[in-house]
Structures are given as C-alpha cells and as structure tokens.
Amino acid sequence: MAITDSGQMVRGAKRPNRLFKNLTAKIAAIPMIATAVVVFVGCTLWTIYHSFTKSRLLPAPQKWVGTDNYDRLWSENRWITSIENLAIYGACSLVLSLCIGFLLAALLDRKIRFENTIRTIILYPFALSFVVTGLVWQWLLNPDLGIQNVIQNLGWTSFAFDPLNNADIVIYGILIAGIWQGSGFVMVLMLAGMRGIDEDVWKASRVEGIPVWKTYLFIVIPMMRPVFVTALVIISAGIIKVYDLVVAQTSGGPGIASEVPAKYVIDKMFGSQNLGLGFAASTMMLLSVLVVLIPWAYLEFGGKKKK
C-alpha cells in the first residue's frame, strides 16, 4: 500500500527492494570486500594449506606431509620458549597497560592544569615506531650508558640493573619498553570513555557523599565496559604480533631467551627457508588471534539482546 497526497491508501504500490537500498554505498564497498576475500581470506587458506606441505624456499603443494610440521614445531625448544615469553609478556602487558592507562586517564579527568601538555607528553611514545622504541630502551637499559650507570654515578655503586643481558628477566626488559609506548594510547581511550559519561553521574555521587575512588571503581568502570573491551582487543592484537621491539632490543637473545612467535616465523620462512614450518607457526598464531576475536565478537554482538 501507498499513501497519496489526499491521505488515501492505494493498493498495489511496491515497496523499494531492500537489495537496492543504499546502492551507491554498496557499490563503493565492493573493492574492500573483494580485497578482504581474495587477499586476507584467500591468503589465510593458502597459508594453512601449505603448512601441511614440505615447502622449503618455494611453495610445494605436491609434497604433502600431513601434520609433520606441527609435530616438529611443538617439539622445538625455541618455539616453546617463544610461547612462554609471549604468555609472560602478554599477561603483564595487558594488566599493566590497562591499569596504568586507566590511572593516568583518571588523573587527567580531574581537569588538572596543563592537561593538554601532559596528555601530549604521555601519548608521544605511541607516535614512535617499535624499532625506535626498542633502540631507545636498549640504550636506557645498557649498564655502561643508561639507568645503571647514572644511579651508580650518584653514589649507589652496588646498584645493578641489566635485564637485557640476563636470560632470566630479559622479557621484562622488553616489557618495560612495550608498556612505555602503549600506555599513552590506552590512556587516551580511557579518557575518551570517561569524558563521555554524563556529568549528572558525578553530581549524584557527590550528593550521596561517595568517595571519588569508589565512584571510579563501582560506577565509572562498569559504564566503560565497551572501552575496556576495545582496549583489550587492540592490546592483544599488538601482543600477538610483537616483533620489531624484540629485534631492536635483543634480536631474540641472550641465546633464545627473548624469542617470540612472530620472530620465529620470520626466521624460519626467510632465514632457514622453511616455508612449511613457518606457515605452521603462523597458523598457530592465527588460532591465538581467533581466541581473542571470537570472545570479543560474542561480547559485542552475540551477547546483546534484540530490542
């Protein structure tokens, strides 16, 4: 039915086909969709397939070896060490980045003086590449030039802080650089979420006499759930693919003490010229990404009730 200018209902009028609704936008999205399907999905399937082959310098689809590459992968001490390092780096980076970023955002949310300047200074490390960040902290953690040397020159001659040359704690030296770079970005996300909260919430908490820390803990944080989920996904994606920071600071050393999965993949594919094993390792990294994305997608879309 359709309604005429006189207000009468006319039968037989067809509704516009939903397929042709926003047709221009749909046509404009075709290149992006094609790229996603062909490049990302296609290359992902191609990689997974060749992880079951004995590909060396070049792909060899006819040399099918089944799960041999995966068996070899999980029997290598280097790969196990890289997984352990990623777990330590990931857990600490997630917790510390979220906590530090939230605390910095809460301080700036109090509308302190020189807020813009302080925010710019804290966010500045995020503008640097991981290579530059790694080189900066390689110098700062150098016992002859950096923090240890400065403190010893101040009189504490027994002070020792050389994590990059200690196999037991080298991953924590890399963690320091990662948190230094990423906390500012998390702070900006959290601050944007806080500034989006209605001012009436703060007025009500002040009227009720609720302390500021309780307001943040029991009111603000639950209201910022989407911001925390977004920050969690972004940080997790960065953790899984961490590579530049390790190469710039330690190149995986001492020995293999600071090895990470992304470096393992690059070394196997281009250093050892073993594409099959490199593809197997990258497939395992893909699974770790899915472990992060699937719960996020469920929380954001699957868990919502239709109104």
Rank of each mutant, 00 (worst) to 15 (best):
R11D: 14
K203M: 10
F301E: 02
A87R: 13
S51E: 02
K307P: 09
A87G: 11
V233M: 02
P226H: 07
Q138D: 11
K304Q: 12
G276F: 01
Q148A: 04
V37W: 08
C43N: 14
L299M: 11
M194K: 05
I179Y: 00
A231C: 09
Y70D: 06
R72P: 01
N22D: 15
V186D: 00
S97M: 09
T230Y: 03
N116W: 11
R18H: 08
P125D: 09
T283G: 10
G178S: 07
A34F: 14
R113N: 10
K263G: 02
F218G: 05
T53Q: 03
M269D: 01
P125L: 09
V10G: 08
K214D: 12
S258G: 10
L286M: 14
I240V: 12
L175S: 01
F20M: 13
Y49P: 00
Q273K: 12
K54G: 05
L96P: 00
A105V: 08
E76V: 02
K307V: 10
S236M: 12
T230Q: 05
G238N: 10
A60D: 15
F279P: 00
V186C: 07
G178L: 00
L275K: 02
G7Q: 11
V37Q: 06
G238S: 07
F114H: 12
I221T: 10
P59A: 10
L293F: 15
G253K: 10
N69F: 04
N166F: 02
Y298V: 07
R56L: 14
V227S: 00
R72K: 13
K214V: 12
V291C: 14
M187D: 03
L58K: 09
W139G: 06
N116R: 15
R18P: 06
S82G: 13
Q8C: 07
L175C: 06
L86D: 00
T24D: 10
I179H: 01
W46P: 01
S251E: 13
A25P: 00
G303F: 05
G276S: 05
K26Q: 14
T117G: 13
L108T: 02
A262V: 03
V201T: 13
M284N: 07
V37M: 12
K241S: 14
F185Y: 15
V10M: 14
G173Q: 04
A192C: 08
V289K: 06
D5F: 10
L191D: 01
I151F: 07
E199P: 02
V136S: 03
I151C: 05
A177R: 00
L245Q: 03
S183P: 03
V132P: 04
N142F: 11
Q152G: 08
I239A: 04
I235S: 01
L287D: 05
L57M: 10
T215S: 11
I239K: 01
N85G: 06
L145V: 10
K305V: 13
K14A: 14
K14Q: 13
G252M: 04
I3Y: 03
K63F: 09
M9A: 14
D162R: 06
Q138C: 04
G278C: 04
T117K: 08
A29P: 02
G196V: 05
G255V: 08
V220A: 13
